[in-house]
Measured scan of single mutants.
Amino acid sequence: KDKDLLKGLDQEQANEVIAVLQMHNIEANKIDSGKLGYSITVAEPDFTAAVYWIK
């Protein structure tokens, strides 16, 4: 199951987060929520590491 990592990002921010996570071998998903911006989700086992790397 995926957990929400970040919400309300613009496309550039979302792409930067995806890139950082991929560099650390964390699979992440970018979801277009329309006017609400983009959300990033990661698998539950990767959540703690993902939070660490996006600081």
Score class of each variant (00 low, 15 high):
residue 34 G to I: 03
residue 28 A to F: 10
residue 5 L to I: 07
residue 21 L to G: 01
residue 15 N to Q: 08
residue 46 D to W: 10
residue 45 P to F: 13
residue 26 I to H: 00
residue 30 K to V: 14
residue 36 L to R: 09
residue 15 N to Y: 07
residue 43 A to H: 08
residue 28 A to M: 03
residue 39 S to F: 10
residue 34 G to W: 05
residue 32 D to T: 06
residue 36 L to M: 11
residue 23 M to T: 08
residue 27 E to Y: 14
residue 25 N to T: 04
residue 31 I to S: 04
residue 45 P to R: 15
residue 14 A to V: 04
residue 11 Q to Y: 12
residue 20 V to D: 03
residue 17 V to Y: 11
residue 6 L to Q: 03
residue 28 A to Q: 01
residue 33 S to V: 11
residue 10 D to M: 07
residue 36 L to Q: 11
residue 29 N to C: 10
residue 49 A to F: 07
residue 27 E to A: 14
residue 22 Q to E: 07
residue 22 Q to M: 12
residue 55 K to S: 12
residue 2 D to M: 15
residue 19 A to K: 13
residue 27 E to M: 15
residue 16 E to T: 11
residue 37 G to A: 04
residue 29 N to L: 11
residue 49 A to E: 10
residue 42 V to Y: 02
residue 10 D to A: 07
residue 29 N to W: 13
residue 9 L to Y: 03
residue 31 I to M: 05
residue 23 M to K: 10
residue 8 G to T: 03
residue 44 E to Q: 06
residue 41 T to Q: 09
residue 53 W to H: 05
residue 11 Q to A: 13
residue 29 N to G: 05
residue 22 Q to K: 14
residue 24 H to L: 05
residue 20 V to Y: 15
residue 10 D to K: 09
residue 5 L to P: 02
residue 3 K to E: 05
residue 18 I to A: 03
residue 19 A to D: 04
residue 20 V to R: 08
residue 24 H to Y: 09
residue 46 D to C: 09
residue 42 V to M: 02
residue 48 T to H: 12
residue 14 A to Q: 01
residue 52 Y to T: 05
residue 6 L to W: 05
residue 1 K to P: 09
residue 50 A to E: 01
residue 44 E to M: 08
residue 18 I to F: 08
residue 45 P to S: 15
residue 20 V to W: 15
residue 21 L to E: 00
residue 47 F to C: 06
residue 1 K to Q: 11
residue 13 Q to L: 07
residue 54 I to V: 08
residue 7 K to T: 14
residue 6 L to R: 03
residue 29 N to H: 13
residue 22 Q to P: 00
residue 14 A to G: 02
residue 23 M to E: 08
residue 17 V to M: 10
residue 44 E to A: 11
residue 42 V to A: 01
residue 14 A to H: 03
residue 31 I to G: 02
residue 35 K to A: 13
residue 16 E to A: 14
residue 43 A to W: 06
residue 26 I to G: 02
residue 46 D to V: 06
residue 49 A to V: 06
residue 35 K to I: 13
residue 13 Q to K: 10
residue 12 E to I: 09
residue 39 S to A: 09
residue 55 K to W: 13
residue 3 K to L: 11
residue 34 G to N: 04
residue 21 L to R: 00
residue 4 D to C: 15
residue 43 A to T: 06
residue 7 K to L: 10
residue 47 F to N: 01
residue 19 A to G: 06
residue 30 K to P: 03
residue 8 G to L: 05
residue 5 L to G: 02
residue 33 S to K: 15
residue 27 E to F: 14
residue 23 M to I: 08
residue 4 D to L: 15
residue 37 G to K: 07
residue 5 L to Q: 02
residue 13 Q to F: 07
residue 13 Q to T: 12
residue 2 D to W: 15
residue 43 A to E: 05
residue 5 L to N: 01
residue 55 K to N: 13
residue 42 V to P: 00
residue 47 F to Y: 12
residue 48 T to C: 15
residue 37 G to P: 01
residue 16 E to Y: 15
residue 18 I to C: 07
residue 26 I to Y: 03
residue 15 N to F: 09
residue 45 P to K: 15
residue 15 N to C: 11
residue 38 Y to V: 05
residue 10 D to F: 05
residue 15 N to A: 09
residue 39 S to E: 05
residue 25 N to S: 08
residue 10 D to G: 08
residue 37 G to Q: 05
residue 9 L to I: 07
residue 2 D to G: 11
residue 42 V to C: 04
residue 29 N to P: 01
residue 48 T to N: 13
residue 37 G to R: 06
residue 35 K to V: 13
residue 11 Q to N: 13
residue 31 I to E: 04
residue 4 D to F: 15
residue 28 A to D: 03
residue 6 L to E: 02
residue 27 E to R: 15
residue 43 A to I: 04
residue 53 W to C: 06
residue 19 A to C: 12
residue 7 K to F: 12
residue 24 H to V: 05
residue 53 W to G: 00
residue 34 G to C: 06
residue 47 F to M: 05
residue 3 K to I: 13
residue 42 V to D: 01
residue 28 A to R: 01
residue 53 W to A: 08
residue 22 Q to I: 10
residue 49 A to M: 12
residue 18 I to K: 02
residue 15 N to P: 01
residue 7 K to C: 15
residue 6 L to V: 10
residue 37 G to F: 06
residue 13 Q to M: 09
residue 7 K to Y: 12
residue 6 L to M: 10
residue 17 V to F: 10
residue 45 P to Q: 14
residue 51 V to D: 06
residue 26 I to S: 01
residue 5 L to C: 07
residue 54 I to K: 00
residue 7 K to E: 08
residue 27 E to N: 13
residue 6 L to P: 02
residue 4 D to Q: 15
residue 40 I to Y: 00
residue 35 K to G: 11
residue 48 T to V: 12
residue 50 A to R: 01
residue 46 D to Y: 11
residue 3 K to M: 12
residue 8 G to K: 03
residue 51 V to G: 04
residue 38 Y to A: 01
residue 42 V to E: 02
residue 53 W to K: 00
residue 20 V to S: 04
residue 14 A to C: 06
residue 21 L to N: 01
residue 25 N to L: 06
residue 47 F to L: 05
residue 48 T to E: 14
residue 36 L to D: 12
residue 54 I to H: 02
residue 36 L to E: 12
residue 35 K to T: 12
residue 41 T to I: 08
residue 44 E to R: 06
residue 1 K to A: 10
residue 7 K to Q: 11
residue 15 N to V: 06
residue 49 A to S: 08
residue 47 F to R: 03
residue 6 L to G: 02
residue 11 Q to V: 11
residue 44 E to Y: 09
residue 7 K to P: 02
residue 36 L to G: 13
residue 10 D to C: 13
residue 31 I to F: 07
residue 10 D to Y: 05
residue 2 D to V: 14
residue 36 L to W: 13
residue 44 E to V: 09
residue 22 Q to N: 09
residue 18 I to S: 01
residue 4 D to R: 13
residue 14 A to K: 02
residue 41 T to W: 12
residue 26 I to P: 00
residue 37 G to C: 09
residue 37 G to L: 08
residue 47 F to G: 02
residue 41 T to F: 08
residue 41 T to A: 05
residue 24 H to P: 00
residue 41 T to K: 07
residue 13 Q to S: 09
residue 38 Y to R: 00
residue 12 E to Q: 12
residue 25 N to V: 03
residue 15 N to H: 06
residue 52 Y to A: 06
residue 51 V to E: 11
residue 55 K to P: 05
residue 51 V to C: 14
residue 44 E to T: 08
residue 55 K to L: 14
residue 31 I to P: 02
residue 41 T to G: 03
residue 22 Q to A: 14
residue 28 A to V: 05
residue 45 P to A: 15
residue 25 N to P: 00
residue 32 D to F: 14
residue 45 P to E: 15
